[in-house]
Computed example of a mutant assay.
Amino acid sequence: MLGVFSGSIVSPPDELVAAGSRTPSPKITATALVNRFLQTHSSAVSMQIGDDAQLAYTHQNESVIQPRSFAVKDDIFCLFEGALDNLGSLKQQYGLAKSANEVVLMIEAYKALRDRAPYPPNHVVGHLEGNFAFIVYDKSTSTLFVATDQQAKVPLYWGITADGWVAFADDADLLKGACGKSLASFPQGCFFSTAFGELRSYENPKSKVTAVPATEEEIWGAKFMVEGSAVLAATK
């Protein structure tokens, strides 16, 4: 799955901007990145959302137990990859039909977060049990909400394209070819919300998430970690 967002929606992470400046490498624009994704996956579906966001996904090579899904409701767009172990109880909590799947649940969970302020986002994501990564984009408020599970069993990466858009994808090689060194694993057990303006840990909401510059030999520009934790908050 792939999501690209302009600077009017999300400011590129300073650490990834710096990484790209330290070790310049070839990059392509956000449009070229989406086109490359579509050319590589003949069955892919893409959605242009206004002038500042685009989503794309494919069922090609997806895991049987961790499928990719897409839904849109009330101008809220969601890409979801993975599966929730407690989907049944969450559907009851949010008053959803038995037929609702993970991506529909995530839209309703986001709506609860948006409309029931002050509703802590770490509670929303912290209640999800299973393996997952998701991208939620609310067109009505130009809000982006992204998260991964506590063990990063579903990989997610983010980077900066040549024209300064922020890209999220489950394919590291795809972003490596588009973002150069301005690339990192999205940290496990964390969420990013433009409504709150920063990357946060939902496992340890009081701990700050910081980035450590990577060595030039690594494909990553930086590794994000939760302060006070001995474990890097990034996939290996």
Rank of each mutant, 00 (worst) to 15 (best):
I76F: 00
K111R: 15
D75M: 04
D85V: 07
Q93E: 14
M47A: 08
Q54C: 13
T31R: 13
K27D: 08
Q92K: 14
K91M: 07
A112W: 11
H59C: 03
A83R: 13
A100N: 02
R68S: 14
A71M: 03
K111N: 03
S89Y: 07
T40Y: 05
D51P: 06
N86Y: 07
K98L: 08
G50I: 02
A97M: 09
Q66I: 02
L84D: 08
A112V: 08
A44E: 13
S99W: 09
G50P: 01
F80P: 00
E102Q: 14
V103S: 10
Q93P: 01
F80L: 10
N61M: 08
N86L: 06
G95K: 00
D75Y: 01
F80M: 10
V72W: 00
T29F: 09
K91F: 03
A53E: 13
R36I: 02
E81G: 04
G50T: 04
T31A: 13
N35P: 03
L113C: 02
D74Q: 11
R68W: 03
Q66T: 00
L87T: 03
I107L: 10
I65A: 13
D51K: 15
Y110G: 07
Q92D: 15
L55N: 04
H41M: 00
A109N: 12
C78M: 07
I28K: 08
L84S: 05
T29M: 09
Q92W: 06
Q60L: 10
K27R: 15
A32F: 03
I28S: 10
T58Q: 13
A30H: 05
E108P: 01
F80C: 05
L105F: 12
D85N: 12
M47I: 14
P67N: 01
F37V: 06
I65G: 01
V64Q: 11
R36Q: 15
I76Y: 00
R36C: 02
Q93H: 11
Q92G: 15
V103P: 06
F77Y: 15
D85K: 04
N61A: 12
L33N: 11
Y94T: 06
A56Y: 12
F37W: 15
S46W: 02
P67D: 01
Q93V: 11
